[in-house]
Computed example of a mutant assay.
Amino acid sequence: MTTPNTPPSRGELLRHLVTTRIAGLVATPREVNLRHYTELVEGNRRYWLGLDLGDRWKSAEDVLAVLAERAGVEADPAHRAGQDTIDPMRTLDGLDRMAALLRDAAARRSRVLVATGHPGGLLDVHRAIAEALRAAGAEIVDIPRGLRVTEGDDDTKGQVRQFGGVAVLESGATLWHTHAPQPMSAILDALKESGQAWPDLVVADHGWAGRAGQHGIPTAAFADCNDPALFLGEAEGTITVTVPLDDHIEDARDYAPMTAYLLATAGLTPRSR
């Protein structure tokens, strides 16, 4: 990889994912993962990320089994503390499946909504996706102006804005880290009220992705192993693709080779055409 924007080979990216801890031995503690799995099965909607999971998931062990299969976390329920993992091969496979959706969206000149609840980590990833899709002929949905979320926790409230084609939540002049689905609901409600069609595809994370998928919109999501709902949504067919990765590594610039690989695989960079 000569520059951050040069698409790496699959082998190069595999090594990069492990070296930067985007995958492999990730920073997320095992005890945090297990606590989130328990909160989800106990019905804490904060951990459902906008999905309606009902009472279908009976135990944290059931959730762990799905995360072991789809994200590559340690499968042994007796592993209760310390390090946890994301299988980098599953990250690569997820990127390939997401790339297929992006390629199809560009070919069909689809309406695509890109959003992130993790601007400190993934904003540049989403921005690059939006720019590449627009350049390839897809329509990046312009969200209606003046959208606000006024109810919920502190990380839910604020103005829903768009920067570089990416929808985010802003509060107090700060882009907000939020797991909430309410910002996506605000966008979809406003599109409907103004007579505009909903997106053909959503590329997002956290509750932005979950709520879009719950509404039946094809959704490609990035998710950390401590956000189990999107993996359960993929298992149930509500989320189209969920890419496992650490969603807030030490230096967000280290996502650039992954983004370059994704776009090149989707046929959205000059080198790959």
Results as ranks from 00 to 15, higher is better:
130 A>K: 09
131 E>T: 13
131 E>C: 06
131 E>S: 12
132 A>S: 12
132 A>Q: 10
133 L>C: 04
133 L>R: 09
134 R>C: 02
136 A>Q: 13
139 E>A: 13
142 D>L: 12
142 D>W: 11
145 R>W: 02
148 R>S: 04
149 V>Q: 03
150 T>M: 05
152 G>E: 01
155 D>N: 05
158 G>M: 01
161 R>C: 14
163 F>M: 01
164 G>I: 08
164 G>M: 06
165 G>E: 05
166 V>N: 03
167 A>W: 06
167 A>C: 10
167 A>Q: 06
169 L>W: 00
171 S>R: 15
173 A>V: 02
173 A>F: 12
173 A>M: 07
175 L>H: 03
176 W>D: 00
177 H>C: 11
178 T>D: 03
179 H>L: 06
180 A>I: 07
181 P>L: 13
183 P>H: 15
183 P>Q: 12
188 L>Q: 11
190 A>M: 10
193 E>F: 06
193 E>A: 13
196 Q>S: 13
197 A>P: 04
199 P>L: 15
199 P>R: 13
200 D>G: 15
206 H>K: 12
208 W>F: 15
208 W>S: 04
212 A>W: 05
213 G>T: 04
216 G>K: 06
218 P>W: 08
220 A>T: 06
221 A>N: 00
227 D>I: 08
230 L>W: 11
235 A>E: 10
237 G>L: 13
238 T>I: 15
240 T>N: 09
240 T>G: 07
241 V>S: 12
244 P>C: 15
250 E>R: 15
252 A>F: 06
252 A>M: 04
252 A>H: 04
